Amino acid sequence: MTRLLLPLEHNSLSHDLTDDALLQRLRKLPRRVQQVFLLSRLDQLSFASIAERLNLPAVTVERHMNQALHTAREERDALANIAGQWYVRLQSPQVTASERIDFRRWLDSAPEHREAFHATELRWRTLLAPARQLGEDGWYRQPRASLSLGGCSVAIGLGLAALAAIGFWS
């Protein structure tokens, strides 16, 4: 994602959650959400590129990114939720000039808004280390989840059962 407010040299030293806790929360996300998140965070693909690569609507990519960013929050704060939605929306290829103006108005309307958005940026940065652990084997780069042996075994078993039933009744 692109840098929005924080300077590049900014380091966040205080984290609400440890890297281990963040990793555990990320692992609890649905596999597709993890995949979208890792393609964005580790491979730095744009939402449009992720949508094209995974054959998903852009709005779905945006929703998955909101879900991933939401897992990094300890508190259930409405203002933090709004800031997170803005943070993700501004990365979308579908964001309009009008929405950017609305964001700027929201950001400038109260110091708490700027603080919440700043905290969201810090949260995004804290997700890098857990993301590297989650995606270390590169599984997320596959366009579709590969068939599991268990799924094939069930399909083969059902097919054989159907053939046996047809043969039995013939």
Score class of each variant (00 low, 15 high):
Leu29Thr: 10
Pro30His: 05
Arg31Val: 12
Arg31Trp: 13
Arg32Glu: 12
Gln34Val: 06
Gln35Val: 05
Gln35Pro: 06
Val36Ala: 03
Phe37Pro: 01
Leu38Met: 03
Leu38Val: 06
Leu39Met: 09
Ser40Gly: 10
Arg41Met: 04
Leu42Asp: 05
Leu42Phe: 00
Asp43Cys: 10
Asp43Trp: 01
Asp43Val: 07
Asp43Thr: 13
Asp43Gly: 03
Asp43Gln: 09
Leu45Asn: 03
Ser46Arg: 01
Ser46Ile: 01
Ser46Asp: 07
Phe47His: 09
Phe47Thr: 11
Phe47Gln: 12
Phe47Tyr: 07
Ser49Leu: 04
Ile50Leu: 02
Ile50Gly: 01
Ala51Tyr: 04
Glu52Trp: 11
Glu52Gly: 06
Arg53Gln: 14
Leu54Thr: 04
Leu56Asp: 03
Ala58Tyr: 08
Ala58Asn: 15
Thr60Phe: 09
Val61Trp: 04
Met65Asn: 04
Asn66Phe: 01
Gln67Leu: 15
Gln67Glu: 15
Ala68Lys: 10
Leu69Gln: 09
Leu69Phe: 13
Leu69Thr: 05
Leu69Ser: 02
His70Phe: 03
His70Cys: 11
Thr71Lys: 06
Ala72Cys: 13
Ala72Ile: 11
Arg73Phe: 15
Glu74Phe: 06
Glu74Thr: 13
Glu74Tyr: 08
Arg76Phe: 13
Arg76Asn: 15
Asp77Met: 04
Asp77His: 14
Ala78Gln: 15
Leu79Trp: 04
Leu79Phe: 04
Ala80Tyr: 12
Asn81Lys: 13
Ile82Asp: 11
Ala83Trp: 09
Ala83Asp: 07
Gly84Lys: 00
Gly84Arg: 03
Gly84Val: 00
Gly84Thr: 12
Trp86Glu: 00
Trp86Leu: 03
Tyr87Thr: 01
Val88Leu: 07
Leu90Arg: 08
Gln91Ile: 04
Ser92Asp: 07
Pro93His: 03
Gln94Arg: 11
Gln94Ser: 11
Gln94Cys: 09
Gln94Phe: 06
Val95Pro: 01
Val95Thr: 10
Val95Leu: 02
Thr96Asn: 09
Ala97Lys: 08
Ala97Ser: 05
Ala97Asp: 12
Ser98His: 08
Ser98Asn: 13
Arg100Tyr: 08
Arg100Glu: 14
Arg100Gln: 12
